[in-house]
Write a protein that binds this DNA or RNA. Structure first.
Lengths: 235, 235
DNA sequence: CGTGTGATTGACGCCTGTCAACGTCTGTGG
DNA sequence: CCACAGACGTTGACAGGCGTCAATCACACG
């Protein structure tokens, strides 16, 4: 992906908006957003925003992948979600008038669109449908995150790792060879499973020798999806 | 608390609204709400709504205490929060157009006010300030729950139990004798700590013999708050 | 080719979940 | 008002899952 020569469309014709909460915004307002928005490229591993900093706008992924993490009070990093094309993130803290409680980091090279807070608030006030759409989106995401935590806690590691693999698959999909289309480190997988690197690797090795997955270097190939799902649902 | 002889005020003069998100709603609309709302009493231990049922309105605690629980896929109950006077609950699923993902249960005898979904949506459309207040409230709560999960996970039991005691204290306060003003069972405390009853009791006994708390029957008296906080923050 | 980062595996020990036995309280019915 | 049953609280014994640490291996990069 050559960001240098990528031609950024205006909001009015941007196809990404149809994958987001901005799909039904009318043209006049889109022109408005187009003027006030900023387009920001981020390199792989760059921080987009940091927990405890002050939010002053909403982020949308135009291109690339973003990881959203929390650091608990022990300093352990937990991955609570990913954002890909069309996903908005970070707006919950903004609308709660709080500092960010998560950190957003680019996984790939990314193009992020940024809409300032005042513009969003103006839209919520002016457009009830937009407000309702934002509620729906926000609270859906909330439910997902809460369910994830709820399910990860108090479960044996095998199950947590299996769930993590399914989560990665849902977020990024598989490529042609059934390989998880994400270059995540083992540590990052452990951060999804809310476990440690060593234990997670051990479990992946087990899955490998049991024929559920195949480890090809850092790549993970899904061999037996039904059994993997079964492992995730166990008990 | 004698619910039979309690005289329910109209919304227009109800003092509880100032402790909720409805404090700044104007009189005309209050009269409107007053007509469409329902006032529902619940007895101790009664279910207010059940996970996986369909939300068709917003609940407000007028009087009493409510516990909000999730049951994970292992069937383990987790307490994710409490609602007391003026707290609204269950609206997130309603606005996400999803089924409830939590169950709400009366801890005490309660009086719950119920405002139908259409009325809330009408208000969000009509009143941008109300919408923004609801966003702020909802996402604040979201952050709290996410932080709670995040902090409970991957921590030693002593810390989780200490955090749970502080959480109960924040939710219900202490009475004159520094005793936690909530009649929660040991099992319920374990459900907050995301642990088991037996292990939680063991830890409470430790705290007891170490002089952090005093166990008086089911009552828990806080003896040394600073050390309890320290225990919760440890490492 | 050397250095550093990440992946893997082994060894070890402890925390905590599980199960069971027993004590305590509460509320109900006779 | 008492007796009993059932729910809840408490404690002990035990096992094993998983976190921790460290050594080694694989690989990328200058």
């Amino acid at each position: 992906m050559d960001l240098k020569h990528y031609k950024m469309p205006t909001c009015m014709v941007c196809p990404v908006k149809y994958e987001s909460v901005f799909g039904e915004v009318d043209q006049t307002r889109l022109e408005d957003i187009n003027v006030s928005k900023r387009v920001i490229p981020f390199k792989k591993k760059q921080t987009i925003f940091q927990a405890n900093s002050v939010p002053n706008g909403l982020h949308i992924v135009h291109m690339g992948k973003v990881k959203l993490t929390k650091v608990n009070s022990l300093g352990i990093e937990q991955i609570i979600g990913f954002a890909t094309k069309g996903d908005i993130f970070g707006y919950d803290s903004m609308l709660a008038n709080q500092d960010y409680h998560i950190t957003a980091t680019a996984i790939d090279d990314c193009i992020i669109c940024f809409i300032p807070k005042e513009k969003i608030i103006e839209m919520i006030r002016a457009d009830g449908n937009f407000a309702l759409k934002l509620f729906e989106h926000g609270f859906n995401e909330f439910t997902e995150i809460a369910n994830n935590y709820s399910n990860m806690v108090q479960k044996p590691l095998r199950q947590k790792v299996a769930l993590s693999l399914l989560f990665i698959m849902d977020s990024f999909g598989l490529n042609q060879e059934d390989v998880l289309d994400a270059r995540l480190s083992r540590e990052e997988i452990a951060n999804i499973a809310l476990s440690t690197t060593a234990s997670t690797i051990r479990t992946l090795s087990e899955f490998n020798s049991e024929g559920l997955i195949e480890l090809i270097g850092k790549q993970i190939k899904i061999l037996d999806l039904p059994r993997l799902r079964q492992e995730a649902d166990k008990y």
